[in-house]
Amino acid sequence: MGKFSYSERSLIKKAIKGDTNALGKILHKNHEYMYKMAYIYIGNKEDALDIMQEATIQAMKSIHTLKEPSYFLTWFCTIMARLASKVINQKIKIRELQNNPEFEEPTDLSKNKNQAIDVLEAVTSLEDKYRLILQLFYYQDFSVKEISELLNMPEGTVKTNLKRGRDALKKNLGEDYYV
């Protein structure tokens, strides 16, 4: 994902110049990919849809700031990642206020032997800070430095959380699990 045809780049350029119909077309064309990314960021359907909706509103307001059309999806997913981070932080505060360690979001995933679903379940079961960093690193191909800048945290913290997230995945999936 991320490589656009000439017509798609043309739509993005029109959107940058203020054509909301062009923006709508490019968002519609990439809807499935963006939903998958939002779901991976946040871990449930409702919040993923909310994040996509809010990201679309923000994109409409700030599309003129996009300098390179070929980075549209990265730019849009960065908006979603920031929104996901805010939602995650809000959920953490709610959990703290409720002071209930058993409070958990229900997941829509069924138990299945399919490796992709196993990995997705393992990722979504991680602590929020590990899930977000793993998603940015592996699914969005952000570097440690880019994640550090995006989440406003030191690179060392990003590296530590990346390592701990990998270790937690290994523990959840088992030592002999290969994808």
Results as ranks from 00 to 15, higher is better:
residue 2 G to Y: 00
residue 3 K to R: 05
residue 4 F to E: 00
residue 5 S to N: 08
residue 7 S to F: 15
residue 14 K to H: 02
residue 22 A to Q: 04
residue 23 L to M: 06
residue 24 G to V: 07
residue 26 I to M: 09
residue 27 L to R: 09
residue 28 H to V: 01
residue 29 K to P: 03
residue 30 N to W: 07
residue 38 A to F: 02
residue 38 A to H: 05
residue 41 Y to H: 11
residue 42 I to P: 08
residue 42 I to S: 15
residue 43 G to W: 07
residue 47 D to S: 14
residue 51 I to P: 02
residue 55 A to L: 12
residue 57 I to K: 15
residue 58 Q to D: 05
residue 59 A to V: 12
residue 60 M to N: 07
residue 63 I to G: 07
residue 67 K to H: 04
residue 68 E to K: 06
residue 68 E to C: 13
residue 69 P to W: 01
residue 73 L to Q: 05
residue 74 T to L: 09
residue 75 W to N: 09
residue 77 C to R: 04
residue 79 I to H: 01
residue 79 I to N: 00
residue 82 R to A: 00
residue 83 L to Q: 13
residue 88 I to D: 07
residue 91 K to N: 09
residue 92 I to W: 04
residue 95 R to E: 08
residue 96 E to N: 04
residue 97 L to K: 13
residue 98 Q to P: 00
residue 99 N to L: 00
residue 99 N to V: 03
residue 103 F to H: 07
residue 103 F to W: 08
residue 106 P to R: 09
residue 106 P to L: 14
residue 107 T to I: 08
residue 109 L to M: 14
residue 114 N to L: 09
residue 116 A to M: 11
residue 118 D to T: 10
residue 125 S to H: 05
residue 126 L to R: 05
residue 128 D to A: 14
residue 128 D to C: 06
residue 128 D to N: 07
residue 129 K to F: 01
residue 135 Q to M: 12
residue 142 F to A: 06
residue 143 S to G: 11
residue 143 S to I: 11
residue 143 S to A: 06
residue 148 S to G: 11
residue 152 N to G: 02
residue 155 E to G: 06
residue 165 G to S: 02
residue 166 R to H: 12
residue 167 D to Y: 01
residue 167 D to A: 06
residue 171 K to I: 13
residue 173 L to N: 10
residue 175 E to Y: 13
residue 176 D to T: 10
